[in-house]
Simulated scan of single mutants.
Amino acid sequence: MLYAIICTDKADHLDVRMDARPDHLAHLKGLGDTLKFAGPFLGEDEKPTGSLVVVEAETLDAARAIAAADPYAKAGLFSNVAVTRWNWTVNNPDAA
């Protein structure tokens, strides 16, 4: 099952994001095929304001564990994290 992890950065925490970025990217790469895609949300100033991470997990609890293990989450970057089941219906390469 696919899960969308939708994260909102705390205001004025760009320095926290940049400091934790190398560990965050290593974490994502370490997920292997579990990670479907990921990237930052951008504000009008083109600076990151949050993250979208889509993972494959057996359960909601497993997806929440992936979200909690993210170095960004551990660094206190996010003001909010939502983890929800997601159905990739359009342009899904696995459905081709």
Rank of each mutant, 00 (worst) to 15 (best):
D61Y: 01
L14Y: 11
P71A: 03
A75M: 02
P22M: 11
A11V: 06
G32E: 07
G39F: 02
I5R: 05
N92A: 01
H13I: 05
K36I: 15
D12S: 07
T84W: 00
A4V: 10
T89Y: 04
L14Q: 13
Y72M: 04
T8H: 13
R85Y: 02
G39V: 02
A4D: 07
P48I: 09
G50C: 07
A68Y: 07
L28T: 05
N87R: 13
L42Y: 11
A11N: 10
D15T: 05
K74D: 06
I6S: 09
P93Q: 03
G43D: 01
P48H: 06
D19L: 14
T59F: 10
E46S: 14
N87F: 10
T59Q: 08
H24N: 01
E46Q: 13
P71V: 03
Y72G: 03
D61P: 09
G76Q: 08
K36G: 11
V53A: 07
P40E: 09
A95E: 09
A69I: 02
H27M: 08
F41R: 02
L77K: 09
A4H: 00
L60W: 05
L52D: 08
T89M: 12
N92C: 01
A82R: 13
G39A: 02
G30S: 13
F78K: 08
V53W: 00
L25F: 11
I66R: 02
T34A: 14
N80G: 14
I6Y: 05
G39Q: 02
L52T: 12
V90R: 05
V16F: 03
K36Q: 15
D19E: 15
A57S: 12
